[in-house]
Design a protein around this nucleic acid. Structure first.
Length: 900
RNA sequence: GGUCGGCUAGCUCAGUUGGUUAGAGCGCUCGGUUCACAUCCGAGAGGUCAGGGGUUCGAGUCCCUUGCCGACCACCA
């Protein structure tokens, strides 16, 4: 890699000390340049003929409806696994792309047109199409730039867009095959109609919101004059299209009405009274007006009883002008008509009463308009034959969800699937590839290539269906259509099926389920084996982020402020296995600070070590490692296990948390501080060489473990460590992911950490005694017989002196100022030059705590049940603890008496 | 209505088969110009683990229940 900025200098240059490493890690000065280097070196491109095992992710294509929001930072999870797998030696392909988002983009462009005082009808289809192209040309590149700024290693040479010519052919092919197999059909059924978008929308695109409405009780007299039925409705305007009244067959109140006829007020139509189990006798009056033309449930009742379907509301949301509609209501919009109808009912004494009523009303997901259910000719995709194998794939475990609970939700939804309304009446999108011959209404056919003649009669006057397809119909083909399907391409053969799909949970029914269905149908294989559902990012108050409320956050703003590494680390931390996560800028910032910390600890280690010491651990002579060396290597082994395990179980937060804690606290705070004197020894001193080698080894491993999370800072450091110069971002033949080395030593860890605890207590005591920060105190150390050899002499003794700023002596010159106790160790501190000679109060405080601890343990051990039934290991631990606590209490009491 | 998630320090969150005296980051208090880092170092204060009940020698952790917050699915006019 060529380097222009000093932070990306090759290792040799920096190591020679020619160019010093800057004091602070400044991602803003490094990341963008470094990314361009990676991309231009082709590090993200996978080869179809690469013999290594492959790992593939299809990127969920962001909608080109605008710029990305912070939620897209969750794509970090995908890059994390791509980089992890590259380090493991896989041939990795991450296929990127964008989605045309027909309904959404269409709504935005229409809004734009409306703001300019025009409309799509006014400017015509050609101009509209140009608008669409401009839109995509504007936002598409911005989105891709955002993804690049986050450091994502998607293979941009394979970028796809769901409206590319090749993709259009894939969509048409899928449609034609399903059509020819009878799984796509056209027919009149009730749909969710949005008058504003002038299109149907699928059940999943209806947004239900609570409304306060009025429930009207309306009396329908019987046609034969004998009695009446009162019904309740919130939508009196739909009564014009009533074609029946329904009651529950078991409802004694209404049994005598069944089979007779009621007369519809205002209109005068006769309505059959039918018996249907759907009717809830306890709701309202127990009698239901049936309007098959404008209510999904009524539609079902209508089918069961073979009722006529009438429409009283048209696609503009106005009352129809059919001759059975009273003149004064015709063409009025539905809402004004409602008021007028209520007046008419009141005038004619049909309105029994009204009451307030709170219920949910469907709104268009895209534009917010109230949805009008109406019956319309639409294209449908039959679900049951497609769903069955997709259900089995998850039941059998061929596809697994993480977190697991989402699998149950998927199955529940799939088992209740209804046919899918796939046509939309807008201009933007994939046109339905169905053609009608002008010679004969019966000559209807679907065709992948635009046909020139009717296959049945050869007629050349053909008309294409005006509808377009639901965007999700095209997205459903994503994992294979991006690889060249329907052609049998090398990419398709090499890279399908993919491995992991990572997305948000709300997308499971919209997209995941449909990819599984089409993958099994067209490719005869599940499109992926693992579905990872990441958390949804909310605003800091736990509300959904929304652009309109101004609570949306631009990921680039965060990247500019804290660096991509910090944003990524935070994303990876919170993405799994949680369900919701609040945006927390401080937490992002903490990862920037971490990058700086890593940078500096590396800077120190590199500056303090000589070129000759950068040879690797293996070249050290046997026995060269001291206690702290073995301690940090033991901790490092545990870290490798924890990070790897976290990634393998789809809990990446475990990994980044562990790396953070290890690097900052174990490595920088303790290990590096403890070896500083050793690094100042002569270059050839074995102790120095061991410390330097271990420090560099730890850095090397940490950088590799951290790289998937924070690629930029790790790459910058990698070039300065000994190695072959191949960027970490590059895939290599030889795996580079660290493996545990068997150096874990739990007993050693315990004794070293108990020494740290003593250091902490001494620091605390020094402060309480009023010792100066830089003042060295004399101290005598006493060890109990059980003490580990570590503390007796050598490194432990040295470290205690260094880290707690003590001079260890055999005998204190005067009375002890304080006595500090640890596990098997007692440190008597000499009095500081100034300040309180002894702090009896704090000793007494400690005594109190120690006594309470003894009481608790003694009580526990006095319990017969505990001693006989608890795990012996636990019992022994309590015994050891109480013993240690008693020793400590005795020492404290003695110290207190000395202080008096 | 069904399902799922959450409720742990002032704030945001860890806490993986039940077992030391419940942790971290930020914030706060006190002290630090030690030649890696003030984007830092050291020390400290701060929690009846949402309420109630149960199982257990032992519960933040398991079971039941109540409450509140949130999400998804369904759609009783």
């Amino acid at each position: 890699m060529a380097a222009t900025s000093d932070q990306t200098q090759p290792a040799g240059v920096a190591a020679a000390g020619v160019v010093p490493m800057p004091k602070a890690w400044k991602p803003q000065e490094v990341e963008e340049h470094m990314y361009r280097e990676w991309e231009s070196a082709g590090l993200f491109s996978a080869a179809a003929d690469d013999p290594r095992p492959r790992f593939v992710i299809s990127m969920p294509p962001p909608n080109i409806t605008g710029e990305l929001h912070l939620g897209h930072a969750q794509y970090t999870v995908q890059d994390l696994y791509c980089r992890y797998k590259r380090l493991l030696g896989y041939n990795v392909l991450w296929v990127p792309g964008t989605d045309h988002a027909a309904l959404g983009t269409n709504a935005l462009i229409e809004r734009q047109l409306a703001a300019e005082g025009t409309s799509r009808e006014a400017i015509g289809r050609a101009s509209f199409d140009r608008r669409v192209e401009e839109w995509y040309a504007n936002y598409g590149p911005r989105i891709l730039n955002q993804l690049r700024r986050l450091g994502f290693t998607a293979d941009w040479t394979r970028l796809r867009f769901t409206m590319d010519p090749a993709y259009i052919r894939a969509v048409r092919t899928a449609f034609v095959r399903l059509y020819d197999d009878g799984l796509i059909y056209r027919g009149p059924r009730i749909v969710n109609w949005c008058a504003h978008c002038a299109s149907s929308v699928s059940d999943l695109e209806v947004d239900w919101r609570e409304h306060e409405d009025t429930l009207y009780y309306i009396r329908y007299d019987m046609a034969d004059g004998d009695g009446s039925l009162t019904i309740a409705t919130v939508r009196p305007e739909t009564m014009l299209a009533d074609t029946a009244v329904a009651v529950n067959p078991s409802d004694d109140r209404y049994r005598r009405y069944i089979g007779r006829y009621a007369r519809l007020p205002i209109v005068g139509r006769e309505l059959a009274v039918v018996a249907d189990d759907y009717v809830d006798p306890k709701f309202g009056t127990g009698a239901l007006k049936v309007t098959p033309g404008h209510d999904p449930n009524d539609y079902e009742i209508g089918r069961r009883h073979d009722l006529e379907i009438l429409s009283s509301i048209d696609k503009e949301g106005n009352i129809v002008s059919d001759d059975w509609v009273p003149d004064e209501l015709r063409s009025r919009d539905a809402l004004t008509a409602r008021g007028r109808i209520v007046e008419m009912l009141r005038d004619r004494d049909h309105l029994v009463r009204t009451e307030g009523y709170v219920h949910d009303v469907g709104h268009c997901d895209r534009c917010g308009e109230v949805i009008e259910p109406l019956v319309d000719d639409q294209w449908w995709c039959a679900m049951s034959r497609l769903a069955a194998p997709a259900i089995e794939a998850v039941e059998d475990g061929r596809i697994r969800f993480h977190p697991e609970r989402f699998g149950a939700g998927y199955l529940d939804w799939m088992r209740r699937l209804r046919d899918w309304n796939i046509s939309r009446q807008i201009w933007l999108g994939h046109r339905v590839p169905v053609y009608y011959c002008s010679r004969d209404d019966q000559h209807v056919f679907a065709s992948v290539e635009p046909p020139t003649a009717c296959p049945q009669c050869g007629g050349t006057e053909l008309r294409q269906d005006p509808d377009v397809l639901d965007t999700w119909f095209s997205s459903a083909l994503w994992p294979f259509a991006t690889l060249g399907w329907p052609d049998d391409t090398p990419d398709l053969r090499a890279f399908y099926p993919t491995d992991i799909l990572d997305t948000a949970r709300e997308i499971i029914p919209l997209w995941v389920s449909r990819m599984i269905m089409t993958g099994l149908r067209f490719m005869d294989a599940e499109p992926f084996h693992t579905v990872v559902i990441h958390a949804v990012i909310q605003d800091p108050h736990g509300q959904r982020m929304s652009k309109s409320k101004g609570t949306g956050v631009d990921p680039l703003e965060m990247v500019d402020r804290y660096g991509a590494d910090a944003v990524r680390a935070w994303s990876a931390d919170v993405a799994l296995p949680r369900q919701d996560v609040r945006f927390d800028e401080d937490r992002i910032r903490s990862y920037q600070l971490f990058a700086n910390k890593l940078w500096n600890v590396a800077r120190f280690a590199l500056a303090a070590t000589a070129e000759t010491e950068r040879q690797g651990l293996d070249s050290l002579p046997a026995g060269a490692l001291e206690e702290f060396d073995r301690w940090i290597l033991s901790r490092l082994d545990a870290l490798i296990v924890r990070v790897t395990d976290g990634l393998e179980t789809y809990r990446p937060g475990e990994g980044i948390t562990a790396i953070y804690e290890f690097t900052w606290h174990d490595f920088a705070d303790w290990y590096v501080e403890a070896i500083k004197p050793r690094l100042r020894l002569q270059p050839a001193d074995p102790s120095r060489v061991a410390a330097a080698s271990v420090a560099l080894h730890v850095l090397d491993v940490v950088i590799r473990l951290l790289h998937p999370y924070m690629p930029f800072v790790t790459e910058a450091l990698w070039t300065r460590l000994p190695g072959d110069g191949t960027p970490l971002t590059a895939g290599t033949q030889v795996p580079r992911w660290p493996a545990p080395t068997g150096r874990q030593d739990v007993a050693l860890e315990r004794s070293v950490e108990s020494l740290f605890e003593v250091v902490r207590r001494v620091r605390d005591a020094r402060k309480e005694m009023g010792a100066g920060e830089r003042e060295t105190l004399p101290a005598a150390m006493q060890l109990t017989p059980s003490t580990a050899g570590l503390l007796d002499a050598g490194e432990g003794r040295r470290a205690l002196g260094l880290l707690a700023r003590l001079e260890l002596v055999e005998e204190l010159p005067g009375p002890a100022g304080r006595v500090v106790l640890g596990d098997g160790i007692e440190v008597s501190l000499g009095a500081p030059a100034a300040g309180a000679a002894a702090d009896k109060a704090s000793l007494e405080r400690e005594l109190k705590a120690a006594t309470a601890n003894i009481d608790r343990l003694e009580q526990q051990l006095a319990s017969e049940a505990f001693v006989t039934r608890a795990n012996p290991v636990v019992v022994q631990r309590s015994r050891d603890q109480v013993q240690a606590a008693r020793e400590k209490r005795a020492a404290l009491e003695e110290a207190i008496s000395r202080a008096e």
